[in-house]
Structures are given as structure tokens and as C-alpha cells.
Amino acid sequence: MRSSERQRVIIERLQGSGRVAVGELVAATGASDMTVRRDLDYLAAQGVLKRVHGGAVPTMPSGIEPPFAARSTAATEAKQAIAAAAVAQIRDGETVVLDSGTTALEVARLLRDRVVTVMPLSLHVAQELIGAPGVRLLMPGGEPRPGELSMVGPLTLASLRSLRFDVAVLSPCAFSLDAGMTAFDLGDAEVKVQALAVSTRSMVLVDGAKWDRAALAYICPADRPDLIITDATAPEADRVVLAQRGVLVQVADRAGAQADELQESLS
């Protein structure tokens, strides 16, 4: 198991239990005791967790946005598959407003060889697209949030209001049928709302770990997007409900071959 995969296991177990033991992680990953301890030390240096005797605990309380470095190593295979499915829905020549976050970063990497116009809502995402030969890059104004480097504030909102896009590609922090799409940061939520308002169609990218969760700031109802792209770990019952409401739900294949669409004809 590669280091990124081991670190993903560590983060997912921390999210589920609030504490992990070295012995538990050795059994889960098949790595040596020393290798697991090195992974824990690395994640502690990134601010993801705090080392305690025999294991680790999360540094961030529940309900607080995990740091970008932590999210960048979580559910990477699912995010890459979701990003590939999203890019397949974008046609050459289209104008795209591309959200911040780690899934959006995977989308940007796949757009480098495409002929599109993109306004990224994050400096991380913008950096990925700089120099791409076929990409026309439009930068919004605003203030980058520390760590996240997502663009927020009145200048970002003004930039969005002055344009119209073919598609908004958004990746919320949390998603549920009851709470809808939500974000941890108020400014980030406001930008996402505006991106939806100025786009002809919308794609929402949300891996299974974000389902049945809610964050502080409301963005829109769960059935507002035209297309939701997720992975097979998303609750099937919720996917069926969304299909009943007329939302196209696409389940991305982690192997990167095909993405199975769930659009059920319900009487």
C-alpha cells in the first residue's frame, strides 16, 4: 500500500472514531509499526492530527473545516474518478466556472489538455491551469482564504455577476437530502451560490464521505443541481430519491473505465 493510501486510511478512521491506535493501523494497512508511525508523524506535521501515546487523535473538532492538506490525501481514487466523469461532460469551447477544493483540483488537472475557458475559484486550481495551451484562464478578484486559497468577498462576487458560464462545476463541503449543499465558510457558500446563478447548467461533485453531512452555511437544496457525480459509497436510497426528483445522478467508476448513470424511470 502506497503512503498516500495509508494516510487516507488513517484520516478516514480518525473521522469515524476520533482516535486511532498504531496497532489498529498496522492491521488495516499491512505496513510495519515503524512505517505507520512515520505516516502519523507526517500527518501531525501537516496539522491533520495530534500524536498521543500509542496512536493519534484529530486536531480539528467535528464541524470545523479540515485543513486542505488533510483533504488532499482523503478519498483520492474516488475524487479522481469523479473528476474524470465531470470532464467527460464538458465540451470543447465551453465556459466553465470551477470551484475550489481537492476534487476541483483533480478536474483542473484533466482540463489542461482541453480547449475551454475557465474561471477558477481557487489559487490552487488556477496554478494547475496556468500554462495549459488550450485553456483561456479568467481570474476573479477577491481575497484568498488562508490555507484554502479559495477566492471570497465582494470582488469575487462582482467578477461572477459580470459573466455568464455554460457550466458551474461545484464541490460542496457537505451534502444531504435534508440540509442540501452546505459549506463550512460563509464567504465560500456565497460564492458558490453566485456561481450557480450565472451558469446555464450545474454539476456537483460529491464523494460518498460527504453524504449525510451538513456544514454551517447553506448553498442550495439537494435537488438544485442538474447533475450530481458521486461514487458507489454514496447512499443508494438517497440517490434513488434524487432521481425521483428529476436529478441526474452519475456514479463514477473508480477504475476509470465507465461511469454508470442512475436516472431511473419511476412511475
Rank of each mutant, 00 (worst) to 15 (best):
M1F: 11
M1R: 13
R2P: 14
S3D: 10
S4D: 14
E5H: 13
Q7I: 01
I10E: 01
R13G: 13
L14H: 09
Q15I: 05
G16E: 14
G18F: 04
V20P: 02
A21G: 15
A21Y: 14
V22A: 08
L25P: 02
L25G: 06
A28H: 03
A28Q: 08
T29V: 10
A31L: 14
M34V: 14
M34G: 10
V36I: 15
L40S: 03
D41R: 15
Y42H: 12
L43H: 03
L43N: 03
A45N: 06
A45F: 02
G47T: 04
G47R: 09
V48K: 00
V48Q: 02
V48H: 07
L49K: 06
G54L: 13
T59M: 13
I64T: 15
I64A: 14
E65K: 09
E65I: 09
E65R: 14
P66Q: 10
P67K: 06
S72T: 09
A74F: 11
E77M: 12
A88F: 09
Q89V: 00
Q89W: 06
Q89T: 01
R91V: 07
D92P: 10
D92E: 15
V96Q: 04
L98K: 06
D99S: 03
G101E: 02
A104I: 02
E106M: 11
A108Q: 05
R112A: 11
R112Y: 09
D113W: 02
D113M: 07
T117G: 05
P120W: 06
L123S: 11
V125F: 05
V125T: 12
Q127E: 15
Q127L: 14
A132Q: 03
G134T: 08
L137I: 00
P140T: 08
G142M: 08
V152F: 01
G153H: 10
P154N: 04
P154L: 06
L155Q: 15
S159G: 05
L163T: 15
R164E: 15
R164Q: 15
L170W: 00
C173P: 04
A174M: 04
S176R: 01
M181P: 00
T182E: 03
F184V: 07
F184Q: 03
F184A: 07
D185R: 06
L186W: 14
L186D: 15
D188T: 04
D188C: 01
E190I: 04
E190H: 09
E190L: 12
E190V: 04
V193H: 09
Q194N: 07
A195N: 00
A197S: 13
T200N: 10
T200R: 12
S202T: 14
M203V: 14
V204W: 02
L205D: 09
L205C: 01
G208R: 03
W211V: 08
A215F: 08
A217K: 00
Y218W: 11
I219S: 05
C220K: 01
P221Q: 10
R224V: 13
P225S: 00
P225N: 03
D226W: 09
D231I: 00
D231W: 02
T233N: 09
V240G: 02
V240M: 13
V241I: 14
V241K: 12
V247L: 03
V247H: 05
V247G: 07
V247K: 05
V247S: 01
L248H: 10
L248N: 11
V251L: 07
D253F: 08
R254I: 08
R254S: 05
A255H: 14
G256E: 04
Q258H: 12
A259N: 03
A259L: 04
L262W: 00
